[in-house]
Design a protein around this nucleic acid. Structure first.
Lengths: 134, 134
DNA sequence: TGCTATTAGTATAAATATATCCTCAGACAT
DNA sequence: ATGTCTGAGGATATATTTATACTAATAGCA
């Protein structure tokens, strides 16, 4: 039960970016150094964020990444699902076929409740909020 | 961000055991079959639960595992920490040296808040409660 | 004692998550 | 055009989690 390294890195990098004026462009290598994230791994992470349209990217000289929407509309939930896909705390929530047991249903209900609560929490944190508090 | 396979299995197995009268003894192989858990892996899990004194175990003929305390005092949090050790959603919460960055602190505060909330939830589910609802 | 059923514990294998490396493609400057 | 700086994407390596196999220890019983 933990958040993946990739999600943590994504949030770190985005908080860093969100501190600068909207539209600022960042190089991957620069972010990697400043946020202390392995450079190549960060590449993958930024690609996922770009696919989810949280970031936009440009190649070539003067290229880089920048946040492509209002940081008050980017939630931590958005970031995590951009990296990991749809959240499912427990395999049985996601894969209906996985649990087919007599007593598993109460656990199933419990995991669903916990997950819903967790998602609500994750949605309550926006990038703008995280920057403000600093 | 998910619960580990081992924790899920532990909860499943305990729910199964808690349905029978207090003090009932179960063989590992029996539990493995009835709860659809890989037999050897279940061995590890039951050992951990025994170390945490949620279960007691006996070897030899007539041996097996049984729940060693009141199921209304065993919470899902207890079970998960028995299996995984002290919960830490994010490495930076657990390992103070891990994050030493300018902007990481807001994220740190957020993870701590989310984790506290999660622990509160996990503590609110008892084994007895899960059995009753069935 | 010696046989069998059971858990304990260790060593290993397989699967998955994490991280790195390398080549390709696009953008810009000269 | 050509060179150089940038991200894109695939292939690979490493670490960690998940799962299995095997051996040792213990208890009961004939």
């Amino acid at each position: 039960m933990k958040v993946t390294r990739a999600s943590d890195y994504a949030i770190r990098a985005l908080i860093h970016m969100a501190h600068k004026p909207a539209g600022t462009t960042f190089m991957r290598s620069e972010l990697a150094t400043e946020c202390d994230i392995p450079d190549s791994f960060l590449g993958k992470i930024l690609q996922n964020l770009a696919k989810s349209e949280i970031l936009s990217s440009e190649r070539g000289k003067k290229g880089g990444f920048r946040i492509s929407k209002d940081i008050s509309h980017i939630t931590v939930y958005d970031i995590i699902t951009a990296i990991e896909g749809e959240l499912s705390l427990n395999k049985c929530i996601f894969d209906e076929d996985f649990c087919n047991l007599v007593h598993s249903c109460t656990a199933h209900v419990m995991w669903t409740e916990i997950q819903e609560n967790l998602i609500k929490m994750l949605k309550s944190y926006t990038l703008a909020g995280l920057v403000e508090k600093y």
